[in-house]
Amino acid sequence: MLTLRLSEFVLVTVLVCAGPFVLALLLLLVAVAYSRAKARRASANREKYLDMLILASEGAGDPAPARRAARREVADLAVHLLSNLIGQEYRQLADWLLRWGFEGDAQEWLGSRSAAQRLRGAVLLLLMKGEAAMPATLPLLADLHLRVRSGVARVLGYAGTEVAVSPVLRAIELDLLAPSIGMMSILRIYPRDGAPLAGGMRSDSAPLRRVAAASVGILEMHSLREPVETLLDDPDESVRLAAIETLDRLAAPGSMALLRAALQSADTAERGAHELALIEQALMSCGTVPSEQMLDFDEEGDAL
């Protein structure tokens, strides 16, 4: 009868496992207590700090708390609030934060080992100080953590100025930033100087050429039409498509000749149906297309 050996074995197993089980139960009890206390505290703090920040945005406001954890909570709430405010209220809240030493906190967080903390610092600093914070925050476009780089690009789009356009384009070129994030940032900045974008269109990086060409169209920078036209024969299809869409947006009659040449050139066979359709669309925006020059497409979408 297998009683002793198996029982012993099972007993040892149970003793080994009973510890973790009891520990897990204790952990659950602690977690319940901790979670409830934390939720109560967080809710009370949120209410208190939000009142304080709203008063600050109206020009009044109590002193900021001194505790580090509390200051972090205030900073997060302030970022939320700042991204919803404009004008005088925004300025007054930013001034209040500067007055109560949040610039020091943000600077300290920028140097933190925690990526989340670095981003927190960059966001707060840029929202408080705008262009003046860019020397301290632009290096974070090359941060080791992708999420920090993207987060900084986002906030640069919101609070940055034209100074940020070249570093953002550079980050796209070096593959440090997703092109779509960089482009959003640039469009939000709404630059008036086209030089950085013109430079981007000459880059060896196809994603950068694409972003630069597409941005020119959305920003309607008519002065950059010619550099865009040179991209109609770019080896990268996505760049060509961006260039065509931009010329469509700019709708300049001066582009018609080049667009028509692209439609009728020997390379036409290599251009996909979608590209050819876009060229036609752009031609229509720039002027009119004689019907005999319009391409027909078969059911598969191939040009006939």
Binding site: D76, V79, H80, S83, R120, V123, S150, G151, R154, V155
Partner: peptide, 8 residues
């Protein structure tokens, strides 16, 4: 700090 990236 999620809020900003989500708002943006």
């Amino acid at each position: 700090p999620h809020k900003f990236e989500e708002i943006e």
